[in-house]
Every structure is written in C-alpha cells, then in structure tokens.
Amino acid sequence: MSSIFPPAAQTAAARRGFLSGFGKLTLSATAIALLAGHDRLALVGPAAAKTAGNDVTFLNAALAAEQEAIAAYQVGAASGLLQKPVLDLAVQFQGHHKEHAAALAATVKKLGGTPVAGKAQYSFPVDKLKTQADVLGFAAELERGAVSAYLGAIPILDDRELAKVAASILGDEAMHWAVLRQALGQPPVPSAFVS
C-alpha cells in the first residue's frame, strides 16, 4: 500500500502548511495558468458579470464544497487516527483543496461576485470516525461527491474555459477518490464511467 503515497520529504512542507491553517493560500502555477488563459475573466466587469450568473453560482457552490473538504481533512488529521504515510497523503490532498478554493475565490472576484465565506464550524460525523479506515471512508465519500458535483456543473457553465478549469479540478478529485479507495482496499476505479 505504501507505494501509493508520496515521499515523506515531499510532504513535510505540506504538513507544516496544513498545520498553520488557511492563511497562506496561493494559486498554484497550474491554476494561475488556467485562469490567466481565461480571456473572459481577464476582461470581466460588472456587465459581463451579469451574464455570468450561473458561473458565479457554480463557483461559489464549488468554493463552499472545497472549504468544507479543507475543514474535513483538518478534522481527519487532527483526529490522531491517521498514521504516516496516510497522514501525509491527507495533508497533500488538503493542500490541493486549498489551491482549488483559492482559484475559485479569485475567479468569483474577477467575475464581479463575492466569494462565499467558509463556515466557522462544520457538522461532521465525528462520532462515527473511530478508526483510520473510518476517516478514509469519510474522505472518499466527500471526494466521490465532489467528482459528481463538478461533473454535474460543467454542462451548465456558460464559459468553456471555466468548464475546462472545472474539469481539471474534477480530475484531481477523481484521483483523490481512487487513491483513498485503494488505501481502503477497495477497487480504486470501480467503473468505466463516473456519474
């Protein structure tokens, strides 16, 4: 199982960032490139924002889900139930969600919208998280849902470049889901299609 996890050296910095909370978000090179190539976002103003209603709605819905995922991984890591190298994996995945959230929030602003704020507190089924497998299963459930959420949103996006960004995030979430399933001893890719 350990072959699916990243080298410890790679995740040490991520863990420090993880433990420091959400205050140091920066867009990854990939996200910047995706968003920088987004002509409409670069030129957007209030008028364009009016035509981007569905897109802003989606972006804020996705942002809310990403914020919750960040918080969920925080709960998992702080639970004391995750052992290395699983903990490092969770830290890395949380870092991805932070990058998604930062990219989504920046895009909402560029579209003239207001990024939805994260909740001060989330309701997670912590009473049901007794083992590492419970935590991994919970995370897998969230990642699986995220794949479906992005898949269900892409058809309604007005902007094809934005759909491309959403598809990019979907791919990342799907990899998270597959790796978590593998860690749980489940077939990592349960079917040829996702829905």
């Binding site: 889900a65 089924p125 459930e141 969230l142 849902g145 829905s195």
Partner: peptide, 17 residues
Amino acid sequence: QIYQRCLACHSLEHNRS
C-alpha cells in the same frame, strides 16, 4: 448509489454547503 452524487454538498443528517 445515486445519492452518493449528492454527498459533496448534502447529507441526510447535517447541513453542509
């Protein structure tokens, strides 16, 4: 099984996004 698609944003018992 289909409800699993909803789990990024919803759950039965708790408010989520």
